[in-house]
Computed example of a mutant assay.
Amino acid sequence: MVSARPAHRHPGPTIPAINTSGGAMIGFIVAGLVIGALARLIKPGKQNLSIIATLLLGLAGSVIGGVIANLLGTGSIFELNVLGFIVAVIAAVALIGTAEAITGSRNRRA
């Protein structure tokens, strides 16, 4: 009698899943706020940015920091490590400076 079960096949290489649970997303948002706040403290002068702009620039900085840390082989993009955190803060400072330059040039024209 022939078995109706299909032959077992090796599944091949797997791609690790990114944890998108609510806790991970909240942690990512909190990290973005912390990185954005640190960047605003490090950047001299007064910044005319809202808390939402600080959050978004901090999130962008944390993604940049995670990507660079991942490229250097120190961990995953979403993994918290020292190098990624430092690069994220530096990137957020640069992003805040860019945002100030863009909004400052708009305010001077008006």
Rank of each mutant, 00 (worst) to 15 (best):
L83S: 11
L56K: 00
N81G: 09
L59F: 02
G84T: 03
I86F: 11
N70R: 13
N48H: 15
G75D: 04
L72W: 01
L80M: 09
A60T: 07
A99F: 13
L72V: 08
F78G: 11
V63W: 04
I51H: 04
L57Q: 00
F78T: 14
A91L: 07
V89F: 00
I90F: 14
K43Q: 14
E100R: 03
L71Y: 12
A69K: 01
G97I: 02
I51T: 14
S50K: 13
A88I: 00
G84P: 04
I42H: 00
A92N: 01
E79Y: 02
L72C: 10
V87M: 07
N70V: 00
L56D: 03
A88D: 06
I96R: 06
V87A: 06
G61I: 01
L59A: 12
N81H: 15
S76K: 15
L59T: 01
L56S: 04
N70F: 09
G65I: 00
A92V: 03
L57P: 08
I90G: 11
Q47A: 14
I42V: 10
V67F: 13
N70I: 01
V67G: 10
I68T: 12
T54D: 01
Q47K: 05
L49C: 07
L71D: 09
A60W: 02
V87C: 08
E79C: 06
A69V: 00
I96G: 06
S76F: 10
G61T: 05
L56T: 03
K46N: 12
V93Y: 04
K46R: 04
T54G: 11
V89D: 00
L71P: 01
T54M: 07
A99G: 06
L71K: 11
E79H: 08
E79V: 10
L71Q: 13
T54K: 00
V67H: 09
I96C: 09
I64Q: 11
P44R: 00
N48Y: 12
T74M: 08
F85G: 14
E100C: 08
T54S: 05
L72T: 14
G66H: 02
N81Q: 14
K43T: 09
L80D: 05
G61D: 07
F78H: 10
V63M: 13
F85E: 09
V93C: 12
L55D: 03
L59D: 00
G73Q: 12
G58V: 06
A91N: 12
I96Y: 03
L59M: 10
S76V: 00
G61N: 06
L71T: 09
G75I: 01
E79N: 13
G58P: 06
S50T: 15
G45H: 04
L71A: 15
V63G: 10
